[in-house]
Write a protein that binds this DNA or RNA. Structure first.
Lengths: 148, 148
DNA sequence: ATTTGTGCAAATCGTTTGCATCTGA
DNA sequence: TCAGATGCAAACGATTTGCACAAAT
């Protein structure tokens, strides 16, 4: 059993250690909250979460953390390259735990993001960036809707 | 001179008539506000405006219109296909007067959207949509940042 | 006359911030 | 110890909504 007081989830000591290292390597102190959130984010394969959703999850898992801290943490993880913010519709921000080069489906009436299967989608004929600018990233969003 | 009471802009009767028809064809009553906003939007080539910006423009042009009406109008135009909402990330929604199939540059520190020169960008290897779904649209956003 | 649109101000939603308190190194 | 993290509640900006009034057909 780890030293965490509340959480009902199980985090092995070895996982805690590797998460700690990951945070430390990004210049972030491995605090209880950050470790717990990292566990929720990174131990379940690729995920696309909003701040609210992650906060709800944490509360359900018995992790004491405020919404403000969830926002802080998500942004810090994003800046550290542990996560990637995905822009779909400007109301809510989603964070993708898959930071490799890939694209997304967006299911319009469910407000749900899914990775496009790897190796699919090729973008060609990219125009060159205007003078003094460079291309930071190319995002492709394939918007899906219910047929009929 | 048209019957509009306030606006300092010049809208010819023939333009008013064609805008009227366009609105009517979309099932929208050609009211003073909608005509004036349509004029601002469609008489200056391709534009990418936010609700706030358009409202400011209208106020400067002497068009009496409330911000709420600008929001309503933009959404109605969007639904009618006269405009296209572009989602980037800045927490603000931009509306593009170019409704044809094309893509965008997004200049990161200026929060500014620019059309990618026509005929550029080809997307291939598109995965097929999951069962019961169809592709509504494919959006490509080329994010630019200042070099160095 | 009836339906639809408009303005205003208040309400809402996602997100950020200020500040006192706590915690990890 | 003490910089850095957290929680809370209040502040915020963009957008929406409710309702009385005005305008279009």
């Amino acid at each position: 059993m780890s030293l965490n007081n509340g959480p009902t989830q199980n985090i092995s000591d070895s996982e805690t250690n590797s998460l700690s290292d990951r945070l430390r390597n990004s210049g972030l102190r491995p605090t209880r909250q950050r470790l717990s959130l990292a566990h929720l984010l990174f131990s379940q394969g690729n995920r696309h979460v909003s701040a609210e959703a992650l906060h709800d999850e944490a509360v359900v898992a018995g992790i004491p953390v405020s919404l403000a801290t969830v926002y802080n943490t998500l942004h810090q993880f994003n800046e550290a390259g542990l996560l990637r913010a995905v822009a779909v519709e400007s109301s809510k921000t989603y964070f993708d735990t898959n930071t490799s080069d890939h694209h997304h489906f967006f299911i319009e009436n469910e407000n749900c993001i899914v990775d496009v299967p790897a190796s699919h989608i090729t973008v060609t004929d990219l125009p060159s960036a205007p003078d003094g600018m460079e291309i930071a990233r190319v995002d492709v969003i394939v918007r899906l809707r219910q047929k009929d």
